[in-house]
Write a protein that binds this DNA or RNA. Structure first.
Lengths: 252, 252
DNA sequence: CGTGTTATTGACCAACATCAAACTTAGTGG
DNA sequence: CCACTAAGTTTGATGTTGGTCAATAACACG
């Protein structure tokens, strides 16, 4: 059920993920590589952290997809963000001890538990790591702001297009997608929950986008004939992701 | 145009504001009280920080109201949050140097400039202050998440009611509102920009809320006959503000 | 080969946008 | 103090986006 290693694949993923948003020194990489991790598997559609929890660990996603969501009194849920390998969705519990929302899995997930204490010791040993973690939570914040604009002001078609662009950038950054193919691991219901649309409407929007040549491919693996065109349509500007320039960026 | 004092009213506001979200030691208060501040006035409806800027200072609001917003290509704007005395809306520039949105004034504003360097020195002198600032940015983040739910999933009536509850809590916390009266310094246009509604619709919604006894008073000073009823209607749960229990809380 | 989830379709309806105009208010200069 | 102006508020008429309900079809899984 659990296992403890030093500088495993999980460590590497975490380090590579942080290097997408900040440069790391060798000393910092070493401290990160020595973090104690306990791997654990979660089934599809289960909660990893729940509203009201006061966790003593953070969760590093190693495989699979998760989302951050709230459930309303009438049972509706709002998905506020998606998470994937390398993300630590509950990094905020370091300084906001009580969760005010849930983090749940979309697919089966493997995650590594990192004790708060170990993270704080890492920060103490390499203070700049504190800034990197802080920065990571600020980028999260920037993503929420951008989604606020998307959900508040754009049409259904633009919202769906924006979500596709967003996921594509993030998945490409960690090697899970390519300019050619985007394997989206989320249902139309979940897309609706994230964008404030009904699943019925999401379905119709996807058909329109397909008809208009913005997306292609059936099932959950999308091909996008013209990224530039899609991004333009969605008014997608990746600046809010604050990623350093990608190695194999497909920018015009 | 500018003035430098030690432990002015601005310092006190900042300290009191931070004490709403975290306990401070005497040493921490002293370091905060010694921060170099330069006061400056901004006219109504002007930008204090703009998208693309790389500020070397942070802005502490001392008087007046401001908002955080983005402008879309078609000229529409989305307001992502409101700010008031004691807030440092661009605290995030400490670790996200390039602004990805604007901060502008709603009313005439007095703000104090604090050099990044001074803030970093304060953190170095009292490391727990770093955690407090980090926490402050995390609460900002929690507010964005909550608004995401509100904008994505609630009716116009609930959105407006929620905004009123939100502003009331925050303004009461710093002494700008009471259970009896809420002097809202924002136009219906701005309410619409914040909630993803047209100003026409906001106007009709306000009339409905008035007719149904949720709000009273004309002009921009609202009276709320029954806070509990309004909060229930809005499904407002103040947990996301992460404020410590208020001295004169009006909880049931 | 059932059983449950997801995707799709159609019919109908409500919330909210848009457009345009009138009205109110506050501020400004004479 | 009064006209003049600009911004905000209010009202009405009309159209569109996207929701809801309900049923069917397509999958995935054991």
């Amino acid at each position: 059920m659990s296992e403890s290693v030093s500088s495993s694949r999980a460590h590497e993923q975490f380090i590579r993920r942080l290097e997408l948003i900040a440069a790391l020194t060798q000393g910092e990489r070493e401290v990160l590589g020595a973090l104690p991790l306990e791997l654990r598997d979660f089934p599809e559609n289960s909660d990893m952290v729940s509203e009201g929890d006061r966790p003593t660990h953070c969760l590093l996603l190693v495989g699979g997809f998760a989302c951050r969501y709230k459930t309303l009194t009438d049972g509706q849920r709002t998905i506020m963000d998606f998470h994937m390998a390398g993300d630590v969705p509950d990094l905020l519990t370091l300084h906001l001890p009580k969760m005010d929302h849930n983090v749940g899995t979309l697919t089966a997930v493997t995650a590594a538990f990192i004790p708060h204490r170990a993270l704080n010791e890492a920060i103490a040993a390499q203070p700049r790591l504190g800034s990197v973690f802080w920065r990571e939570t600020l980028i999260q914040s920037a993503i929420f702001r951008e989604w606020l604009v998307v959900v508040g002001r754009r049409t259904g078609h633009q919202r769906v297009a924006h979500l596709i662009c967003d996921m594509h950038r993030r998945m490409t950054a960690i090697g899970l997608a390519s300019p050619a193919e985007l394997p989206l691991p989320i249902t139309q219901i979940e897309i609706g929950d994230a964008l404030g649309l009904s699943s019925v409407h999401v379905n119709r929007v996807l058909q329109d986008l397909r008809r208009d040549g913005f997306i292609a491919g059936q099932g959950r693996v999308l091909q996008i004939p013209d990224w530039h065109r899609l991004e333009q349509f969605a008014e997608f500007d990746p600046a809010y992701l604050h990623l350093k320039p990608m190695p194999m960026a497909d920018d015009h």
